[in-house]
Simulated scan of single mutants.
Amino acid sequence: MFTPGQIKFSIFFVVVFIGIMIYVYRKDIQLHKTYYKGSIWVLMGFIAFIAVLFVLKTTLKS
């Protein structure tokens, strides 16, 4: 399905992309701590909302 060159390129691309993302995140970590200080609560609320929707769907289905 894929040629060996395409597979090598995709692996190279993923490794380089992840490396650049780690480098950029480490470079901006102080800004993240300053500007995104309560964002974990937003994430937790979103996950809880999705969990409630899933529970409602499964309970109302039967």
Rank of each mutant, 00 (worst) to 15 (best):
D28A: 05
A48G: 12
K57D: 13
I22A: 13
V52M: 07
I20L: 13
I7A: 03
V14P: 00
Y23G: 07
V15K: 07
H32T: 04
I50V: 13
I18E: 07
F17Y: 14
R26V: 04
L31Y: 03
I50C: 08
S10H: 03
V55H: 00
V24A: 04
V14T: 13
F2G: 01
S62P: 13
G38M: 11
T3W: 04
M21D: 09
F46V: 13
F17L: 15
M44P: 01
K8Y: 05
V14C: 08
I7N: 02
T58S: 04
Y25S: 11
W41Y: 12
I50T: 02
S10W: 10
K27I: 04
I18M: 13
S39D: 12
I50N: 06
F9M: 13
F46Q: 09
I40Y: 07
F13P: 12
L60K: 06
M1P: 06
F13K: 12
M1N: 05
F46D: 12
G19F: 10
G5L: 14
I18L: 15
T58P: 00
L43D: 05
K33E: 15
K33G: 09
I50Q: 02
L53A: 05
F17H: 05
A48N: 02
K8L: 15
I11F: 14
T59V: 13
D28K: 10
I29F: 07
Y35H: 04
I22N: 05
R26S: 11
Y25T: 13
K33Q: 14
Y35A: 04
V52E: 01
V15L: 10
K57E: 14
I18Y: 05
A48I: 09
I7E: 07
L60P: 02
R26Q: 11
V52Y: 03
Y36R: 07
I18T: 12
R26F: 10
I29D: 05
I22P: 01
I40N: 08
F17V: 09
V24N: 05
R26T: 03
I20C: 07
Q6N: 11
F9E: 15
T59Q: 10
I47Q: 03
K8T: 12
F46L: 15
T58M: 04
T34H: 04
Y23R: 09
V16E: 12
V42T: 10
Y35F: 14
V24Q: 07
F12E: 15
F9H: 08
R26G: 13
K37C: 09
V55Q: 03
L31N: 08
I47K: 04
V24H: 00
F12R: 10
M21E: 10
T3R: 08
K57M: 13
A48K: 02
F49D: 03
G45C: 06
S39F: 09
K8F: 11
L60H: 03
R26D: 10
I29P: 00
I20Q: 02
Q6P: 03
L60R: 09
F46I: 15
T59E: 09
L31K: 05
K61P: 01
V16P: 06
L53V: 06
F54A: 15
V24M: 09
